[in-house]
Computed example of a mutant assay.
Amino acid sequence: MTPAEPRRASDYPSAPRFLRTQEAADYLGLSARTLEKHRTYGTGPVYRKLGCRVVYTIDELEAWAAIGTRRSTSDPSEGTGCILPSQSPRLIGRAA
């Protein structure tokens, strides 16, 4: 398996209960930075804080990825979203 290929639950035979950001990003086939940005903008998968650590469950990662499932490029739903700071809810309405 190359690092660019997304991982599946079956790739973790004795899967840890929680994955840290880098492991979760590898699992999804994303960079850790992209996952961090999604977390910042509120567009990413559900996560937990254990002390100072951010962790994800495989079930939540798969649920978030399933939101992006499409049959056609014309499907109307928004999916997991693109990270565009200019469209972030926190930034809308702010003076430039």
Results as ranks from 00 to 15, higher is better:
Pro3Asn: 12
Pro3Phe: 14
Pro6Trp: 06
Arg7Val: 00
Arg7Asp: 08
Arg8Ile: 06
Arg8Leu: 11
Ala9Lys: 13
Ser10His: 08
Tyr12Ala: 10
Pro13Ile: 11
Ala15Glu: 10
Ala15Ser: 15
Pro16Cys: 09
Arg17Val: 10
Leu19Ala: 08
Arg20Ile: 02
Glu23Cys: 03
Ala25Cys: 09
Asp26Leu: 12
Tyr27Gly: 02
Tyr27Lys: 05
Tyr27Asp: 03
Ser31Cys: 03
Ser31Ile: 01
Ser31Val: 01
Ala32Trp: 00
Ala32Pro: 03
Thr34Leu: 14
Glu36Tyr: 00
Glu36Asp: 06
Lys37Ile: 07
His38Val: 00
Thr43Gln: 01
Gly44Thr: 02
Pro45Tyr: 02
Val46Met: 10
Tyr47Trp: 10
Lys49Pro: 01
Cys52Met: 11
Arg53Gly: 01
Ile58Arg: 08
Asp59Glu: 15
Asp59Ile: 04
Glu60Gly: 02
Leu61Trp: 05
Ala63Pro: 00
Ala66Arg: 14
Ile67Trp: 04
Ile67Lys: 15
Arg70Ala: 11
Arg70Glu: 05
Arg71Lys: 13
Thr73Gln: 06
Thr73Lys: 08
Thr73Leu: 11
Ser74Trp: 04
Pro76Ser: 12
Pro76His: 08
Pro76Asp: 07
Ser77Met: 08
Glu78Ala: 12
Thr80Lys: 05
Cys82Pro: 00
Cys82Ser: 13
Ile83His: 01
Leu84Gln: 13
Pro85Lys: 11
Ser86Ile: 12
Ser86Pro: 00
Ser88Asn: 15
Ile92Glu: 11
Ala96Tyr: 10
